[in-house]
Design a protein around this nucleic acid. Sequence first.
DNA 1: CGGCGCACCTGAGTGC
DNA 2: TGCACTCAGGTGCGCC
Length: 261
Amino acid sequence: MYLPGRRITAVHWSNKRLRTPMPRKLLKAYIENRTVLTIDRRAKYLLVRADNGSVLVLHLGMTGKLGLFPVAAPRARHDHLYLRLDNNMELRFNDSRRFGSIMVWPAEQSGRLEEAFTAGKGIEPFSASFTMEKLLALACNKRQPVKAFLMDSKMVAGIGNIYANETLFDAGIAPETAVNQITEKEWQQIISSCRIILEKAIEAGGSTISDFLGSNGQPGYFQLQLCVYDRAGEACKGCGMPIEKKVVAGRATYFCPRCQS
DNA sequence: CGGCGCACCTGAGTGC
DNA sequence: TGCACTCAGGTGCGCC
């Protein structure tokens, strides 16, 4: 808990735009000189709640990193946001590819904005509403590949390409299966596999959180045992067949042709 | 409307 | 060594 209880004493930013333009005025007006109450997550967004009811919304995109540094530590290439704290530390948002985003929900609109934001997001995999019945209903009129469905943030929140690949391997389901063909039993399996994969990933990533003070941080998934992702041509850990790679709905897709049929 | 393709960026890796 | 080219973990828009 590095942030809750800390006051943000100054906000600085780079002149580069991220996926959304830097909300300079809003950062100054609503985030600077506020104290952080709590941090939540919705889908892959971080919600940093301030004591005035405003919310700082962060998304790391593909290459975004947050790090806590002493104020005097040298600034790095691709740093885009600096939140100076009242303990002489600085939270820094670094993102080389600039697919990340930084938004502010001003206090007087934050309720409405958060409601709209949440309404546009899919089911959280760890929530009680991630059920076979819900998925069946969402999928019944769609023919898209199940992998694209799992990665669609309006359907399911927070599943990226790696975890979609790994979930479907664990569930033994071919990534291109039309989503309206998935049976009740298969949905149950997908739910269970998805949660297992995410739990393992969080556990593995958790160890990188502890050295997030340093700059030598590796992404957490390097510590997760990947069964299919980026393993084209290598032996399936289940049956020994070579893992195949193909593009499905525009994304690199890895699967075992025997275990996922 | 559903589903795909693509754009938004930089950097790493590969092959010549 | 350098250049040209491909590919990358996310998201949302536009187009058919």
